[in-house]
Design a binder for these strands. Sequence first.
DNA 1: GCGACAG
DNA 2: ATCTTGTCGC
Length: 260
Amino acid sequence: MDSPPLEKWLEPAIAPLDSWPTKTAEAKEIQKAEREQVISQNRFCGIENIRTIAGVDVGFEQQGAIARAAVALLDFQTLEPLGVAIARMPTPFPYIPGFLSFREIPAIVRALAKLTCKFPAPPDVIICDGQGYAHPRRFGLACHLGVLLDRPTVGAAKSRLIGQHLPLGEAKGNRELLGDSGETIGVVLRTRDNVRPLYISVGHRIGLDSAVEIVLHCTPKYRLPETTRWADKIASQRGSNKSYAHLICAPNSSDEKSPP
DNA sequence: GCGACAG
DNA sequence: ATCTTGTCGC
């Protein structure tokens, strides 16, 4: 199996992989430094002009300590799938809360490279399975990936890392601000009735309101079961086992937070 | 010191 | 992330 060619827009994210950190002390310094490059306001074509959007799901295989990433590219207007790609590799960094990006980004970049083999243009927006600004050092996975690629990203996590919020209504569309240290760091968004909310936060080059708008746009069509099955099918054709590629939410509803 | 803790 | 057990709603 030879490596697929790496497209030009991915090159800035390739170089850092050679000097990838292995300790939290080093990783923390990188987070503090790269944080300065994050743009938390809209610097993209505008939601009306988005052509393609990529959903990135990350995961871990206990057996073999494998980090994995699945990317699903969609036509933003029709939400029709344009392709999926999956990458697996030994974990370059252990899972430590607050440092997820160091375990997953190498696999994400690899998956994006496979995707660009067939779709040369970079995605207009990337929705990430993890936090963005809603992070102890304001530099979650979505921010990290966005800065490395200098592409618009949104953080869409399935559970809370930090922050507090008022009780959230059970109806679709309900939302509450996620706050930390007197600052708004994200939005808790109910994407479907009686379904666990998503934790939306700014990644790179997109404001919080636009991030919520973009996620809601994708929600009616893409939710966990559909896209997982969809990516699994592609994966089996390529000889892999499992895969994940959801954009939006999973069933259940147990955890909610109360006001401070 | 104790609990919390994206995936 | 993953696994198990029990409960509830459609």
